[in-house]
Design a binder for these strands. Structure first.
Lengths: 341, 341
DNA sequence: TTGTAGGCGTTATCAG
DNA sequence: CTGATAACGCCTACAA
């Protein structure tokens, strides 16, 4: 399979390479006759366009990168699907990489994108990404969209969900059901997202005249088992707690386990709200009331914004915050909670 | 941010581009002195290697494609993670695309890969992919690894699991627990994978002197909701069924929903086995007994094989069939099933 | 409307 | 050990 070049096609059609190039990209004025001749030659020769050469010549490319920490997480695979779809609409190719929370892998990927002359990227940066990484990114002049995780750097476009409002919804729901002893469970101390969710939680408490207790706000790793561990300790120390807003659905599932182990029944004498609306949330018994964040839509919006940046849109950095919604299921009970004071 | 080229670095270091290129790639013999000079110049100038130019010159690339039909399916996202990891080990960049079962999208992606001079691809082809698509692939001289779905084309490398054996395991397990009224739920009619799984199911029944009932073998889309829909219809018509082998975990999760809705309890009066061992399988209550196919491992193996092909391995096409394993959890109960005849 | 020719940044060949 | 130079395949002034 020797590669067929423009020049060969041109020769076969009896025209110059310039003409073929123009036909290929519908540029310039070409007579109908020669156009057809060229098209025929193109077809007969089995020509395959060489993007690489074109990209080199144009100092451009049609490739964008997506960095996640874990594609295995249903939230991110949904988001990926949304982004992928959007990229395809614009004939952009999508590079995928998993940082697995490693700053080094993340840096390697970005470097690789730069070497490959990618024209943009969507990042959900690894947890403890240093500011230096972002500074490095700014120096390159390439469109970057941050997603999901905020790093307090206003120089980048950002697409994510309204964490603050999300936990406000969750908390308001519990308050409406009569709960007054509400805990916040999950998230890791150094997480900005967590700070926002805690903000929504506490602000809503205060709005209702309750003062948030720091000792009822506990961290946990993003796993069911750690959620269970943490919840058990908390509820042993403070049995008066009757409800919890969880940082993540996964954690909420762990809390459910702990409750059962302690002889309490989620949905009856304890109310639980999660965050993310992962698939499992609908499956457990009782099904988990949770805050839904439309992962696919985040991907789509990020793609849209990235594309506009690639097209040259140079408005100041945007923050697109998609509104979350409360999905009410069984885990808070459907009536006034019995355990409320 | 004007791009710094080799030539500029060369000038700064007072050497030729050839020398810089050699230093960059550790090729040829370069004196320690000039090497250091060049490295310093490289560093000071903020040079970024231009893969595109190198690729053009070398008629090669470091980019491979992965085509899936649905990255949202946890099985495929696991597989993607495995492949992605493997690709990164070899400094290959991974293009991702979702065909969404559309032959047209699939073709577009492959064409795009060819234009971009990708050096290989891993495909899980769309369902009704015509032979012509594969023929086209063969004409290009590019390594292709098919995964998961077989298309009976022996000219391609293939990595997948032993579907037949997998459902044999699942079915044997249910039989051992005493079940005699066992259904097969899920998969779409025209799926080759499904045919194999049904084969394992029915062969095991027959081995035990049971004759498979066609009306207890029902298809479903790859979603929880459709699994639930289909299961409800089936179990309403045939309440005597006490167990089911499901085509996929997702479908099994849907069946669980249906069971609960109908007042039956998975793990107590109904036994359920899934297939895939997706993450959620371990999380639902009761946890799902399932056939584990090590999706991540399939991705990894596909990556390994692809890499060896890219390196020039031209042995005849291989079929790598990974053995599935039964993962016993709670969804079949731990004792003789009460509902068995 | 079409052709000519130089250059995108790197690499490999071949002298020196 | 190092330098000059011609490709790689395409695009685009500039000419014709």
């Amino acid at each position: 399979m020797t590669t067929v070049t423009l020049a060969q096609v041109a020769e076969r059609a009896g025209v110059s390479t310039a003409t073929v190039s123009m036909v290929l990209r519908n540029r310039g004025r070409i007579s109908q006759a020669t156009r057809e001749r060229v098209l025929r030659a193109l077809d007969e020769s089995g020509y395959v366009y060489n993007q690489t050469a074109a990209n080199l010549r144009n100092r451009s490319s049609n490739q964008v990168g997506l960095l996640l920490h874990d594609i295995t997480n249903p939230f991110y695979s949904e988001m990926t699907a949304g982004l992928s779809h959007e990229m395809e609409r614009h004939d952009l190719l999508l590079f995928l990489a998993n940082s697995e929370e490693s700053g080094e892998r993340q840096q390697r990927f970005v470097d690789s994108l730069m070497r490959n002359n990618a024209c943009g990227m969507v990042l959900c940066a690894a947890r403890d990404t240093p500011q230096a990484f972002f500074d490095g990114l700014k120096r390159r002049n390439i469109p970057v969209i941050l997603t999901v995780r905020t790093f307090g750097d206003a120089d980048f476009d950002y697409v994510g969900t309204d964490n603050f409002f999300g936990t406000q919804l969750a908390t308001a729901h519990l308050l409406k059901l009569g709960h007054r002893h509400i805990a916040f469970i999950g998230g890791s101390h150094n997480s900005g997202t967590r700070a926002q969710r805690i903000g929504g939680f506490t602000s809503k408490l205060i709005e209702h005249g309750l003062s948030p207790k720091p000792e009822w706000i506990v961290a946990s790793q993003a796993s069911q088992s750690d959620g269970a561990r943490v919840a058990e300790a908390l509820l042993t120390a403070y049995p008066e707690i009757t409800a919890a807003v969880c940082y993540q659905d996964i954690v909420a599932l762990g809390v459910m386990q702990a409750l059962r182990k302690m002889g309490r029944t989620p949905g009856q004498d304890f109310a639980l709200v999660g965050f993310d609306d992962i698939t499992e949330a609908a499956l457990v018994q009782p099904a988990l009331t949770t805050v839904s964040v439309a992962a696919k839509e985040i991907g789509r919006k990020a793609g849209e914004l990235l594309y506009s940046r690639i097209q040259g849109n140079d408005e100041p950095p945007k923050r697109i915050i998609l509104p979350p919604a409360l999905v009410i299921r069984g885990s808070c009970g459907f009536h006034q909670a019995s355990g409320a004071e």
